[in-house]
Amino acid sequence: MNTFKRKLNSDSNLNAVRIMAIGLVIIALASCGSPQQAQVAPPAPSLPVAEVQTGTQTTYQEYPASIEGTVNVEVRPQVSGTLDKVFVDEGAYVSAGQPIFKINELPYRSALNNALASLHAAEAAQGNAQIEVDKLTPLVENKVVSDYQLKTAKASYKVATANIESAKANVSTAQINLGYTLIKAPVSGYIGRLERKQGSLVGPQDLAALTELSDVHEVHVYFALGEKDFVAFKEQYPGETIKDKLKKLPFVSLLLADGTEYVKHGKIDIVDGQFDKTTGAITVRATFSNPQGLLRSGNTGKIRLSLEHKDALIVPESATVDMQDKVFVFTVGDSSKVKKQAINIIGKNGDNYLVKDGVKAGDQIVLSGIDKLQEGMVIHPEKQSAEKVAAVVAKN
């Protein structure tokens, strides 16, 4: 009986071990038989692409400028004296020849009267000398007196005649000085600051002028070109010489200090003969009509030069990325792989870059989403029409 029990327990333990072994085998087989979960690659991003277009574009360059009237005159006294009257106010418009100042004339009128008196005395002396010559001439001819007395009389007549000429010159000088007491506008224009007021003592040696008079019916706008800009200026515009280029230059615009554009266009008419050794720049002048007097001497602004580019490669600015002082685009090549390509920019018009090289007409470039792209990455290109390209540019 005991032997039977021991055998039964032994068989039970053996069965339990067998069951556990079979379970482990089943688990192992199940683990080996189940396929491993493979990693799924993310789908290629869909990005808008478009062909590089060409067209005629106009770019603009702006240069700081100063404005001056065609004539800027310092009004100074030619004679000394007390300023009796000021006929104009600051900022007033005057016509050429209009009186603007009056210096006390009494000393100069007195000098004129003295000069006239000296002239009359000289004329009287000439008359007496002529009488003496007339008296002695027949006496010498009849040999009543020697010709020595006649020669002396004729010499006295010549001295009297010379004294008349000197007296006339003094009269003329006195008249000129008297005329200088009334100071008139040398040109038509606007009066500047009145540095001296009525009652002031003025003279030709004064450091400060009485005022400045500016003729601004036309204005000259001066700006400077550096050496590189000047070389580009000569290369970009047609003509063999600077004179020829000036004739063919397009009109230029003037931007005022508040950023608004002056209503009239100007013409570049003069390029300075040499560069400034201090600044390394050359001065250029443009002339603008100013019939309403809106521009005054001393104004500042900016000259805007336009340049037309024919068959220029056009790339939207939003399709570019700046990196290490260079500008790149992503071109789409075979198998829809993107490639980062540097481009050489020659100008900008609105939201478009004008490109010299780096891409060519017809190349496919990515328009947006380029901040997440990497070299060799595959995308799903969505070709855009010209209208959609414009919309993408506007959106960005």
Rank of each mutant, 00 (worst) to 15 (best):
T331F: 07
R196T: 12
Q341W: 06
D215Q: 10
A342Y: 11
R18M: 13
L106F: 01
Q57K: 03
L8S: 06
K360W: 11
K267R: 05
T161S: 09
S46F: 05
K143M: 11
L8Y: 15
T137S: 10
A65S: 12
P35G: 13
Y190N: 08
I346T: 06
S336E: 03
S66D: 10
A115T: 09
A65D: 10
S118Q: 15
A319P: 00
Y237E: 00
L207H: 06
N2R: 05
A115I: 04
L373Q: 13
K197E: 13
R109S: 12
A342D: 13
F288E: 00
V216N: 11
V144I: 13
K356F: 05
I365K: 02
D89G: 08
I131W: 13
H217T: 08
N163C: 01
E90P: 09
I346M: 06
S200E: 12
S172P: 03
N352G: 00
Y237W: 01
E375M: 04
H380L: 02
I191P: 05
G199H: 12
S188L: 11
G199C: 08
E212W: 04
D215S: 05
G199F: 15
A319F: 12
A169T: 11
A115M: 06
T54V: 12
V144Y: 03
K243T: 12
F233P: 00
V221K: 00
H380G: 09
G369R: 01
I131V: 10
A390F: 01
S66P: 07
V327A: 01
K310V: 04
H309A: 01
E308P: 00
G91P: 00
V25M: 12
A50D: 10
T54A: 06
N349H: 02
Q236N: 03
V393R: 04
K85W: 13
H220P: 04
D357Q: 15
M1A: 04
S200N: 14
N104S: 14
D322G: 05
N9E: 13
I183V: 11
L24K: 15
K248V: 03
V71G: 04
K348I: 07
N170Y: 07
S146H: 06
P107T: 09
